[in-house]
Amino acid sequence: MPNQLKASLPIVCSAVILSALLLITPPALYAQEIEFGRYGTYTITLENISMGDLEFDGPIVAGGGIYQVELIDAYVLSLLGVKYLDVGVQIIGDGELLLNGNLENSGDPEKSIPFTLRSAYANRAQNNISDAVFIPVSGTNTGNARFPILARQQQPPGPPPPPPTEAFNQSEVDETAYLYLYGEINVGNVNAGNYIGTITITVEYE
């Protein structure tokens, strides 16, 4: 019996150290899923389809209240990537538009306009707002979504994709999804002028 205790000591020690190591491993190792898109050299391209900026068209008058850009007039971006991979989208918008974009005007009721960002995506291979799925956006104008580039159309997930090799030609499995940005501003008794804010969209495979 004492010999058995001595023999088991290194195993107990290694189990303790292994447990400690597992606690400091990267978060991806915790997940009960395999994020195929994280392995390999897949590319993803996010491009503006709409020209210019997300513009609240006039005439907009000081004290005029709510002005909207509807989904049908949304700013559109295309997302070109591997159709069977999931993509994570993070959208971060300013909470207010500032007179001349000057950060010193933040919080000034005469020089800033509250901005509420809304967003949606379509992943049925068409730029069609009737396919749009709304992306929840928080009160701080931050939204996150995860979806496959091409919707699985209520089918069960297929087998894992083959790992990319040198012979892999991504263009053969590429598809385009679409992102829509829109929202509203609440115009109080502000100074006349040009009010500017920004929205940053980040996408990556998951």
């Binding site: 898109g37 994280r38 390999g40 050299t41 897949y42 590319t43 993803i44 391209t45 996010l46 491009e47 503006n48 900026d53 997300l54 513009e55 609240f56 006039g58 005439p59 907009i60 008058v61 000081a62 002005y67 700013y75 971006l77 918008g93 300013d94 538009l97 306009i113 901005f115 940005l181 929202g183 501003i185 115009v187 502000v190 100074n191 006349a192 002028g193 040009n194 009010y195 500017i196 804010g197 920004t198 929205i199 940053t200 969209i201 980040t202 996408v203 990556e204 495979y205």
Partner: peptide
């Protein structure tokens, strides 16, 4: 394998 884009939001307010 990611990509990021920043777009501007604009509104011109008339007096």
């Amino acid at each position: 394998n990611g990509n990021a884009v920043t777009i501007s939001v604009n509104a011109t307010i008339n007096s």
